[in-house]
Simulated scan of single mutants.
Amino acid sequence: MSVVTLRRVARVGLRTVSQRAASGGHAGPSEWKMTAGAAVVGAAALGTAVYNLWGLQWSVGPSVQAAVPTGSTSLEGRRKMFNFIADVVDQSAASVVYIEIKDNRRIDYYSGQPTTVSNGSGFIVNEDGLILTNAHVVVSTPKSTVLVRLQDGSMYTAKVEDVDLVSDLATIRIPVKGLPVMKLGQSADLRPGEWVVALGSPLALNNTVTAGVVSSTQRAPEELGLQGRDMSYIQTDAAITFGNSGGPLVNLDGEAIGINSMKVTSGISFAIPIDYAKQFLSRRLGKPTTLGRKYLGITMLSLTPNILKTLKQKNPKLSTEVSHGVLVWKVIIGSPAHGSGVYPGDIITHVDGEPVKGANDIYKTLEGDSKFLTMNILRDNRFIEIKIKPDDQSY
């Protein structure tokens, strides 16, 4: 008997009893028993229906079963399916190199070898040993030796071929042929939100991989305080730190779409677009470059209003008096700046009494005839004054 039929039986029995009571008659025992039994059966059927409804089992309509864990879910194959970052690394890492700068004027007491003063990264762009990197990686110390370590651990002495200080690009060459070459992609069609992988040797840790997304494809140099540059930078949240400079920023096709350049703060890093690097490679002279600029031994970042705002959000204790200057990003060991007591994180606000609006102001001062520079520096919310004697730089 269906639930609907049982409910009808119960209603008929109850109606009969009600009619007898209204006419003044009395139901006999047998009628009460029959009616009560029908009511009980109907109520039980109705309760069963309600129970089945809450249990997702409605006996009148189609049956729907709740999901039940099987207890044996297999994850096999997911590593191969979803590890797209590892696939990029497998294809691209072999062409990434570690670059080490040795200062021939400083000898390590224990090893008797020139002291390592800086390091960076680069990547092979031609199988005959041509390597692309950042200019500040290879021109950071005068009278130094540039060493290149390949992924297999072999080490070679490199020769600096071309340097463009404006774009911060350089090429070096090692005497090896048949090397794996990094594929060069296109940065013109890059989109915000794309996954990218930064390869390099941050903090001298070889073959390090970080990943993130493209935050902006057209970050104007003026926003970074960089004057005289006719290119826009790629902004990413992939970690780019000391030693990662010069390494490739790679898309998911395994193509270099940028050259890691600088980090402002956690989650904000910048890369030089590969399309600009292609222009540099096409016009390079292939001859050693002679540099006559005086040398401080620091890497700087101009403080724009946007960067200052970001720094103050990260460090609320930063002095509100700072409205311009350059942030010292890196100090080369053994350099004039290092010997004079300049540290990473210092903010240079004035040089020789003149306000510093950007890195170009420092460069213009170095082109002058002054043998000493007097710098006003903000450190730990205190202003200090430091005198530096720049070195003459030559290669």
Rank of each mutant, 00 (worst) to 15 (best):
G292I: 10
Q279L: 15
K287R: 14
S261R: 00
T265K: 10
S282Q: 14
R283Q: 11
A277S: 07
Y295C: 06
L281T: 04
R283F: 05
T299D: 02
F280L: 15
S302N: 11
G297R: 01
S261Q: 04
R284F: 03
S282F: 06
S269A: 13
L301F: 09
I274G: 01
I268N: 10
I268R: 12
S282K: 12
T299N: 07
R284T: 10
T289L: 05
G297W: 01
S266F: 13
D275C: 06
A271E: 07
K287N: 06
T289A: 11
I268C: 09
S282D: 13
L285Y: 04
G297A: 08
Y276A: 11
A277Q: 02
V264R: 00
N260P: 08
S302M: 08
D275K: 07
A271Y: 02
K287Y: 06
R283G: 06
L296K: 00
Y295F: 14
L281I: 07
G286R: 09
I268M: 14
S261W: 00
T265A: 12
Q279C: 12
T289F: 03
Q279N: 15
R293Y: 12
Y295D: 06
K278M: 08
F280I: 15
I274W: 04
D275T: 08
S282N: 13
L291M: 15
S261Y: 00
D275I: 04
I268T: 14
L301G: 09
I298S: 01
G297Y: 01
L291A: 10
Y276S: 09
Y295S: 09
K263R: 10
I268H: 12
L301V: 15
V264W: 01
A271L: 10
K287P: 00
G292D: 12
G267C: 07
S266K: 13
L301S: 11
Q279K: 15
A271W: 03
R293F: 14
P273G: 10
I272V: 11
L291H: 10
R284H: 09
R284I: 09
F270C: 13
L296I: 05
P288V: 04
R283C: 03
L281D: 05
L291E: 08
L291T: 11
R284Q: 14
F270N: 09
K278F: 08
K294S: 12
I274D: 02
V264Y: 01
M262D: 02
G297V: 03
T289P: 07
G267S: 08
R283P: 03
G286N: 10
V264L: 14
V264P: 00
I298R: 01
R284L: 11
K294L: 10
I272E: 00
A277V: 02
S261C: 04
Q279R: 15
I272P: 00
I272M: 04
L301D: 05
L296R: 01
